[in-house]
């Protein structure tokens, strides 16, 4: 009796495990699982060959390439420049820092349509930036580059906000210790700082990537929406809905869902592995 009690106490230090797990599952079901499973169920209206014909149509495949490719590039850009932004915000003090810090969150709050229209106005051939790029032969608005610009815009806060707290926790003393032990700046960065922020950076990258895949509102204005060139997968889904083809719309959605899930699962796995290695090393 005494033994059993202590074992239980060790397993759950906090009481209410069953209740809170029950609530978590109920909540996740209500908010995530049930609506998503509705998509899977709707798809079963199609036979497998019909399903395959819809999701492997050349035009749909071209849109997967654009959506996932542009999202990946956007997330990579954000990983680099988001890290830089987070670094500047944590390590330096300068006038107006609070304002810049608040600016980072704007892409979160802005309605995506507003972002799309604003980006288009700026990057179109007669816009503030577009008018300087066009003579150089660079067209941004209404091309796949425009898609990347929009997806980079909406993904920025994810990287900054996940890396920032980790950088704040990183004590400057560890860098000083590294320096006093003879490490140069590059070594300090690669051996001390980077391993510590790497898991957070991966999370930020994954969030920015996932957000970009599903983005519709901001992209639709700046992409030209031309089939095989600048048509994103969410637009294909909307197009099918407009034509009352609910089942084939959900078929494409299911494919997106599965690919996104696999990618996020892989990134999470990578992050877990990195974390474990990091703890094993220390």
């Amino acid at each position: 009796m005494h033994k059993k009690y202590s074992k239980n106490a060790k397993q759950n230090i906090l009481p209410g495990f069953n209740l809170s797990l029950g609530f978590t599952i109920f909540y996740l079901s209500l908010i995530v699982l049930i609506p998503l499973s509705a998509a899977f169920i709707k798809t079963t209206e199609l036979s497998f060959s019909e399903f395959w014909a819809v999701v492997s149509a050349p035009r749909v495949v071209a849109s997967y390439q654009l959506t996932f490719g542009a999202s990946l590039i956007g997330a990579l850009i954000n990983a680099v420049f988001g890290l830089l932004t987070a670094w500047v915000l944590v390590r330096y003090t300068f006038p107006g820092k609070k304002i810049i810090d608040a600016l980072v969150d704007l892409p979160f709050a802005l309605p995506t349509a507003v972002a799309g229209i604003a980006l288009t106005a700026v990057y179109a051939g007669n816009g503030w930036i577009g008018q300087w790029l066009e003579p150089l032969g660079i067209k941004v608005a209404f091309t796949p580059i425009g898609v990347i610009v929009a997806l980079t815009f909406i993904g920025l806060p994810f990287v900054v906000r996940t890396v920032q707290p980790v950088l704040e926790d990183l004590e400057a003393e560890t860098e000083e210790a590294a320096a006093s032990l003879g490490a140069n700046r590059w070594q300090t960065f690669t051996k001390i700082i980077f391993p510590a922020i790497w898991p957070a950076l991966l999370t930020g990258f994954a969030l920015a990537f996932a957000r970009a895949i599903g983005e519709y509102g901001s992209v639709i204005f700046i992409a030209g929406n031309v089939p095989f060139v600048s048509e994103i997968t969410p637009l294909i889904i909307i197009t099918k809905l407009e034509q009352y083809e609910y089942a084939s719309a959900t078929a494409v959605a299911v494919v997106m869902l599965v690919i996104s899930f696999l990618l996020l699962f892989a990134i999470n796995g990578l992050q877990w592995w990195v974390n474990r290695r990091a703890t094993a090393l220390t």
């Binding site: 030209g224 031309v226 637009l235």
Partner: peptide, 11 residues
């Protein structure tokens, strides 16, 4: 010859 296909007439 169509460079942009907007989703609606106003667009």
């Amino acid at each position: 010859n169509v460079p942009v296909l907007d989703t609606g007439a106003r667009g």
